[in-house]
Write a protein that binds this DNA or RNA. Structure first.
Lengths: 348, 348
DNA sequence: CTGAAAGCGCTTACAG
DNA sequence: CTGAAAGCGCTTACAG
């Protein structure tokens, strides 16, 4: 096998021109199907690999996509909660990478340092023209989004949006997810349902809470003030949860980790889960599985989210004026063992 | 500012040829210092960015380095211990990325799926010629190393070696680190010192144990059989640690997380740390800080490790026949609060 | 110290 | 359906 097979080699071998080879290999018009097949076969036989630098130089396109993850999600500070956050993002990176691969693109990960984010430094991937587009994974500062949006390169945001900004984003539908989970509890006969989460902490928790609340409204259930149970302080550190004065029959938690903590707290305090009290979580993370009982939860559709993200990005690459705004991808309720049908108790 | 400034633009503007501009911007011989400075200044003024595709096409060099991390380190399975492992590797990736940046290179992360690893699939970065070298972070299967070593692209391994294979690797000196930690305990008067770790689990734990053992030998301290305390089963799941029949005055743990577990276990069993028993860990991970008392530990020198790795890789790129074998980078003892001077007890 | 010429491997009009 | 010509932006000999 020759060290570096080029189009010319294949062209010479088959007695055609390299233009024809180029057309065949790029699946363009202007070659007969028969010749095209012959060329593709010969290319494979000779172990031909397109020289992407030459292609890039000519077509002004790098066939790379930059994936930006803010540093804060990759670090393990003393108070960090998100041991799972980085794994979650790495998993998404891997899926994106594979999907881009199928389109003959490569993903390039750039971890955005907090310093660069604060000083509005754009990754050099941009000025080096090493990427044709950016995917931002997770929340970045508003000013940074505004800066990215001024660049002549398409950017799509995943798992983060800001309604005050003009940006294209793909998110899990937290509102709908929590709505589904709450509806499930109501179907099971529960009506005294509390929400667990600091609703001021992130927009994602807020959306989940509102989905929960909508479900109550639809079923004409009033929400008592102390039925919003706080789970963390303003710095995100978990705190002990305070039960409402009238104990609910079910809790909707803003994430599995908190559901896990709650179940343990309830058990310590003499409640049985799910016999006395039902609990649902969110995320379908490992916490829902290490918990006894396993927690019924909502799983976001990562497959569809990544597919949509790439979809939007390529549309933007093809047409810089293309905009979609916010795309919400529906998740799925995963029924495990932490919810029981509500039955009136004797003592009631 | 013009959309796409090229060398020709700068050459025309200054009335020189683009060859001269190329030489000046690449800091090559054949341009007077004065003209060179003028060219560099003008390039900056016009916002010139080298077209790396053109450069790559001509010089057959991509100015990218592929960083390979096996998937297993990025996943959070049910039994995974290493919540910190992925953060650790992401941190290294970020540092590598920054250091490569200074050399005008970019890092491209490739997460190697277990499937690809088992089927000996090489990342397409290689056949696409998108990278000039690989850095492998963490352990990969022996067959995969052998495959990588047959490729015409230099590879350096970090945080993993296999003495049976011919490979260039940069590792933390686990042996020396544990030797230092043990010596520290001996200096503090301890002589009844146990090691905590499954010495059959990884070569890294084994090396740490041997460093510990060497320290004992140097001080003519015999090692009782039950002074090797197992911390995990063969699948890596932590188990309850069994104390030796004669209680040691100090424990050397193979990592901070285990040290943290041990301290808690000792406290539950009525021992005070460090008043009754001293403990040292390894890694200087967050476990050493969330523990009360904070655990005296050994920190590897990530700065030097990444520097050496890039160093070796560039030497190999410059000269494909260059080999160094295994480089061990010395870590540092970080003294915290889990060790006290040993004093003979009254009851003894 | 400086520059004209050739060419890296590919694609894009355009002509047949 | 096929191909000769030009050119993407740069670097590498080589000549002056």
């Amino acid at each position: 096998m020759k060290q570096n097979v080029t189009m010319k080699d294949i062209a010479d071998y088959l007695g055609v021109s390299k233009v024809t080879v180029s057309k065949a290999l790029n699946d363009k018009e202007g070659v007969s199907d028969k010749l095209k097949a012959k060329i593709i076969e010969e290319a494979k036989k000779q172990g031909y690999h397109m020289n992407l630098n030459a292609k890039s130089l000519r077509s002004n396109c790098s066939y790379n996509i930059g994936v930006i993850i803010p540093e804060q999600f990759t670090n393990t500070g003393e108070y960090y909660r998100g041991t799972d956050e980085i794994s979650y993002y790495m998993n998404i990176y891997q899926i994106l990478s594979n999907k881009l691969y199928e389109k003959n693109f490569s993903a390039i990960l750039h971890i955005l340092s907090t310093k660069d984010e604060e000083n509005n430094i754009i990754p050099r991937l941009y000025s080096d023209k090493k990427v044709d587009g950016f995917i931002v994974l997770g929340q970045v500062r508003r000013a940074y989004v505004q800066l990215l949006e001024t660049l002549d390169i398409p950017t799509v945001y995943m798992d983060f949006y800001d309604d005050y900004l003009s940006m294209d984003s793909v998110n899990s539908d937290n509102f709908l997810g929590c709505h589904m989970a709450t509806n499930y509890l109501i179907e099971k006969g529960h009506r005294d349902i509390a929400f667990v989460g600091n609703v001021f902490y992130t927009s994602s928790i807020q959306d989940r809470f509102l989905g929960f609340y909508k479900s109550l409204l639809e079923n004409r259930i009033m929400l008592a003030e102390d039925y919003i149970v706080c789970d963390r302080d303003d710095k995100g550190r978990y705190i002990r949860m305070v039960y409402p004065s009238k104990m609910p029959t079910a809790f909707v938690c803003n994430c599995d980790q908190v559901a896990y903590e709650l179940v343990n707290q309830l058990k310590c305090d003499g409640f049985r889960v799910p016999e006395d009290i039902s609990v649902v979580g969110f995320d379908n993370s490992r916490y829902s599985n290490i918990c006894n009982p396993n927690i019924t939860t909502v799983e976001e559709n990562t497959e569809n989210m990544t597919k949509e993200t790439i979809n939007v990005l390529f549309k933007k690459i093809a047409n810089p004026n293309y905009h979609v705004g916010k795309i919400l991808v529906k998740g799925e309720l995963i029924v495990k063992n932490s919810v029981l049908e509500y039955k009136e108790k004797d003592e009631k």
